[in-house]
């Protein structure tokens, strides 16, 4: 592909600027929302190590969200705090997968695995992005993400081949989560311009890579993806499960008491 590099966010021409803003909202909102879901295990996970892992991942994902929001701010959007705490559910661009309640431990570890595999595929592609600040950030985030993926994979394998109950719970979780995970790759009107400019691959391409990354692990864990699994779309255009509203009510509660408060 004959593409030129965009050394800074300021180099983006108007049309691509809008596409990048949309992309960054999708990335940031996924991270913020799953980060909050992970934090719901702090103090409640089945064993101490699991508690520390989910709390650490929550902190990582929130940090990643902040870095993406910071890029949005450089592109003229509001500051990171306002973006995280000052928007309504319909303004969020996250996928259904991250919105769903934490469920049981099986659901949370499976969701996290599916999500981390998607993030790894995305970040690996972004390392080659023509948008230099995105490539730099992706290079950095990939090193952190590998620990999330290792953690998720080991839990999926452990519970998948564990007891009858653990396998049953994992399969039930997969039956719900897989369709929602496919929704992470909801196509948008910006796929084409972003791909042509070499900024991000098409969502369909990322989905193919993700499917071939998760399939062997799910197979090793003895879990089956239903043939009927259809992607749950809508998140990227602001249509979300009711669970997002409840999550944001909690996440934004303190901020909304006095948005101008200095911390």
């Amino acid at each position: 592909m004959d593409t030129k590099a965009f050394q800074s966010l300021d180099c983006l021409p108007g049309t691509l600027r809008e596409a990048v803003i949309n992309l960054l909202y999708r990335l940031a909102d996924d991270e913020l929302v799953i980060g909050h879901r992970n934090s719901e295990w702090t103090g409640h996970a089945p064993i101490l190590e699991a508690d520390i892992a989910f709390s650490s991942m929550a902190q990582d994902e929130m940090g990643h969200a902040q870095a993406y929001y910071q890029m949005l701010h450089q592109l003229g959007e509001a500051d990171p705090d306002t973006l995280a705490f000052g928007r309504k559910p319909r303004e969020f661009r996250c996928a259904a997968l991250v919105c769903l309640p934490k469920g049981d431990w099986a659901f949370s570890v499976l969701r996290q695995f599916l999500y981390d595999a998607a993030e790894t595929v995305r970040l690996t592609a972004f390392v080659e992005s023509t948008l230099v600040p995105l490539a730099q950030l992706a290079t950095k985030l990939r090193g952190e993400e590998k620990y999330h993926l290792m953690h998720g994979r080991s839990w999926v394998l452990k519970l998948g081949v564990g007891t009858e109950e653990s396998r049953g719970r994992m399969q039930a979780a997969l039956d719900v989560a897989y369709s929602c995970a496919l929704g992470l790759f909801e196509p948008t009107e910006f796929d084409e311009p972003l791909a042509q400019a070499g900024i991000a691959p098409r969502e369909s391409e990322l989905r193919r890579q993700w499917e071939s990354a998760v399939a062997p692990v799910l197979a090793d864990a003895g879990l089956h993806v239903s043939e009927a699994a259809k992607p749950v779309y809508g998140g990227r255009v602001g249509r979300h499960p009711e669970a997002l509203k409840q999550l944001l009510d909690q996440l934004q509660l303190v901020y909304n008491i006095d948005p101008t408060a200095k911390w």
């Binding site: 190590e49 520390i52 892992a53 709390s55 650490s56 991942m57 902190q59 990582d60 952190e144 620990y147 290792m150 953690h151």
Partner: peptide, 13 residues
């Protein structure tokens, strides 16, 4: 390896 995550983001146990 006991835990991939530790007391701070940068440490494992």
């Amino acid at each position: 390896l006991e835990s991939l995550f530790g007391p701070t983001l940068c440490r494992s146990i």
